[in-house]
Design a protein around this nucleic acid. Sequence first.
DNA 1: CCGAATTTTCAAAATATACTGAAAGATAGA
DNA 2: TCTATCTTTCAGTATATTTTGAAAATTCGG
Lengths: 168, 168
Amino acid sequence: MKLTEAKQQFISNWGAFGTHWGINRTMAQIHALLLVSPDPMTQDDIMEELNISRGNTNMNIRELINWGLVDRVLLSGERKEFFTAEKDIWKVVTQIVKERKKRELEPMLQLLDKLENVEGDKKDKHVKTFVDTVSSIRKLGRQADKTLDRMIRAEESWFVGSLIKIFK
Amino acid sequence: MKLTEAKQQFISNWGAFGTHWGINRTMAQIHALLLVSPDPMTQDDIMEELNISRGNTNMNIRELINWGLVDRVLLSGERKEFFTAEKDIWKVVTQIVKERKKRELEPMLQLLDKLENVEGDKKDKHVKTFVDTVSSIRKLGRQADKTLDRMIRAEESWFVGSLIKIFK
DNA sequence: CCGAATTTTCAAAATATACTGAAAGATAGA
DNA sequence: TCTATCTTTCAGTATATTTTGAAAATTCGG
């Protein structure tokens, strides 16, 4: 397979993959493109390569920057802004975990804390089932939260341990 | 907070949470409802509780059954079908991991294997960056795949280890 | 086998999400 | 400061996804 075709397949599949995880197709595709591009690219480069509008490109680059996955780069002598993606996949994963934890897991845990204190008689099976379920989700969530913190700090844990051997 | 209100908040937030992870709102809400319901429910119960149509209810229940998160239950003397959700959260998580691995991770790994064999001169920096990126994603993915297998088998690993202490 | 009860299907409608492109805003060199 | 270049915004449009509801299919007791 030729590079051009391989690149297209990678980008298109990465986009589809992203949509299964609540990430919009274009954002995932821009990320994929930058991941496999050796040099920083401009908005116009990206627009052209992916056949998308200026507005769309701009919006999704910004979002990628917010997620900490893409950086703005200024090349001396160039007026335009260039963009580049972090290539160390372990860092990419860590960054995504960090953000999703903050945006989704933590608010969910706060909610569960609140819901666990529902009024009512624990002998009522409806109350009991509700409290038990919420409580077990909360516990699992808290545990995951702690573990992910450890992973982010990249100091211990099996996952980091086994992966660090491969990547560092 | 009263049970009714708590239940509603749980269901509605679980639905919103799901959408961030590529799961449709209704499916997540039905799951949430069944999770906190002590007894099996019929389609009509669910329709009424969540104010959704028969078709929608039916389709999403089926999908939850496909995911292995909900079971059809036949109560003796009852013509209607009843539905119930697995309440053991660890089993729920394992089941979701198992399915997503099969549906998303494995196909992605197959693609990456193929793409890593792109033609071309490795000294060309475009080829090199492509191959390096694909290769590092593939390696991380393979590692994750193995680890998740272990987690599914629930026989070892930090995560299981630390969680099993809490849940079993 | 009949027919009422129940479940499933799916085309059409509703809703939610993403994308475009032109205009406004910002920036930097002359 | 002025102007050409580049970036950002956002209302309108397009696309994708979800939901409805009525009709078709299935099921089960008699």
